[in-house]
Each structure stands twice: as structure tokens, then as C-alpha cells.
Simulated scan of single mutants.
Amino acid sequence: MTFLPETRVCPRCGERSRIITCGDSDGTIVSACCEAVIPDLNDSPTVLIEDGKLVCPFGDCGAADQVIELDVATRENRLSIDEEGTIVAHLGDSEFEGDGFECQQCARSVSMPGGDEIVHV
């Protein structure tokens, strides 16, 4: 029996290509030729909003208030020494890049409702 790798039409160049898993935290599936995201293989179900809480959309989980945002941050924190001789890092400028969302209970990827804006405080 011969195993043939799965192929899909690349959404960027239109050629039929093997699919690979990207090295990001979501394990995004992309075309091998252009590393273009294959939409139908990367669907993350949208979280539910019930009684003012974000609820995991997976039926076998359904955890409330367990959705987290995953991100990568680069910060510049100035260092100094205080009166006791302790080195102190002063929180300074930060640059955050969102990496996705997941449920902490079941550790599966989820997405936010389309029109909802997330405010970082």
C-alpha cells in the first residue's frame, strides 16, 4: 500500500500543493508551496456568550470564563538599583502580537465572535 500526502489547491498561487503544519502555537495548516493558510482546515469554533460569560464552544467542554488570549510580547524594561540594593525592572514600553485564543480547560483553539473588539487594559 502506498501512502500519498494530502494535497489541496493553494489559495495564493492556485497550484495543487502538499499541506504542512506551520510552527505556530495553533499548528496552522498551510500550503507547502506558498505557506498560505488553508481556511477550511483551520476553523476554530467561535466562543459562546452566555449570561455575560465567554463559554467554550466544544460540547464536551463548555467551560465558562476559561478562554484566554495567547500573545507574544517584546518589552523594554529599564533596570535600576533601589535603596536596599535590589535590582528593579521598571515596566516600560511593550509591543504585543496576538497569536490566537484557546480554552484553558480543554486547551483547544477557539475564535472570537466577528464583530467583538477586545480592549486591553
Rank of each mutant, 00 (worst) to 15 (best):
T2Q: 14
F3C: 00
L4S: 11
L4F: 09
P5I: 01
E6W: 02
C10P: 10
P11M: 02
C13Q: 03
G14H: 07
S17D: 09
R18K: 10
R18V: 02
I20F: 06
D24I: 09
D26H: 09
G27F: 09
T28M: 03
S31W: 05
E35N: 12
V37E: 15
I38F: 06
I38R: 07
D40Q: 09
N42E: 07
N42P: 12
D43I: 14
S44Y: 13
S44W: 14
P45Y: 00
V47C: 14
V47T: 08
V47R: 01
V47Q: 03
L48T: 02
I49D: 04
E50R: 14
E50N: 05
D51E: 13
K53N: 13
K53Y: 02
P57V: 00
F58E: 11
F58V: 05
G59H: 04
G59Q: 11
G62M: 02
A64W: 00
A64D: 04
D65E: 15
D65R: 08
Q66V: 00
V67P: 07
V67E: 07
V72K: 10
A73T: 12
T74V: 10
T74E: 11
R75H: 06
N77M: 11
N77I: 00
S80F: 15
D82C: 07
D82H: 09
E83C: 04
G85R: 04
G85P: 09
I87Q: 12
I87H: 03
I87R: 15
A89C: 07
A89E: 14
H90D: 13
L91F: 10
G92T: 08
S94T: 14
S94F: 03
E97I: 10
D99P: 01
G100M: 07
F101Q: 07
Q105V: 00
C106E: 06
A107G: 03
A107P: 00
A107N: 13
S109C: 05
S109W: 06
V110K: 06
P113N: 00
G114E: 15
D116N: 00
E117G: 00
I118S: 03
I118H: 12
V119W: 08
H120C: 01
H120R: 14
V121P: 08
